[in-house]
Amino acid sequence: MEALSKFDLLNLPVFILEHVHKIVVKQKGKLGMAYRYFLTKLFKHLEISLRAGTVGTMKQPFSMYTLVECECMEGRPGQLSKKSQLVVEKRQLKHELEEMTALVTKENAEIALLKAQLAKEQTEASGSAEVTKLRAKSESLLAQNAELTEKLIKAHDAANDHLTLVIQSLTQKPPFS
């Protein structure tokens, strides 16, 4: 009770286990107060209403400050001891570290995703540059092919005209002499 009144931290589960061990083992169950009666007495002394509580974490220290913080008691605790202040600050820093770690992990995942997208876009861009070069080459080859086809057609036409003249000259009857 004195420790709680001074706002010192207590590890209540260990305290209860030691109390139960003392009653069961050392005193063989005689002349002892079971832990539930002990807690009832403790809560009555601290004027704590036994209503639905606040969920804590494992290994969370239990102190008068915790009771006020969880709104199990009314009032404002006095100055915390240096150790209690350090424990509270450590808890806050640990929570901030967990939040920062989660944020960094999220940011790293986003960076990896953006890098993958950038690599994909660069691949597509280099592919599209190659496609553009190939299309330009294809267009120049098609133009060259059209010119050669036109020349070939003109050459065939000229050859046909020449052949037509030869056929006409061969089919004409020679003049009588």
Results as ranks from 00 to 15, higher is better:
A3D: 13
L4P: 08
S5Q: 09
F7N: 09
N11C: 06
P13F: 10
F15I: 08
F15D: 11
V20T: 13
H21D: 11
K22E: 13
I23A: 10
V25A: 04
V25M: 02
K28A: 03
G29Q: 14
G29D: 06
K30M: 03
K30C: 08
L31K: 11
Y35D: 12
R36L: 03
T40C: 00
K41S: 14
L46Q: 05
E47S: 05
I48H: 04
I48A: 02
I48N: 02
L50T: 08
V55F: 05
V55C: 03
G56M: 12
Q60T: 12
P61K: 10
F62W: 10
M64P: 00
T66H: 04
T66M: 12
C70G: 09
E71H: 05
G75N: 04
Q79R: 08
L80G: 07
K82D: 13
Q85D: 06
L86N: 06
L86M: 07
L86V: 01
E89A: 00
K90H: 07
R91H: 09
Q92E: 13
L93I: 15
K94R: 04
K94N: 15
E96T: 15
E98F: 00
E99S: 12
E99A: 08
A102Q: 05
L103Y: 09
L103Q: 04
N108K: 07
A109H: 13
E110V: 03
A112R: 15
L113E: 15
L114E: 11
A116C: 07
K120W: 12
E124K: 10
S126D: 15
S126H: 11
G127K: 04
S128I: 07
A129F: 07
A129H: 12
T132H: 07
K133A: 06
K137W: 11
S140F: 01
S140Y: 01
A143Y: 01
A143C: 09
A143R: 06
Q144F: 00
L148K: 02
K154E: 15
A155W: 13
A155Y: 14
A158V: 14
A158F: 05
H162F: 02
L165T: 12
I167A: 05
Q168D: 12
L170T: 13
T171H: 12
T171Q: 14
P175Y: 00
F176W: 10
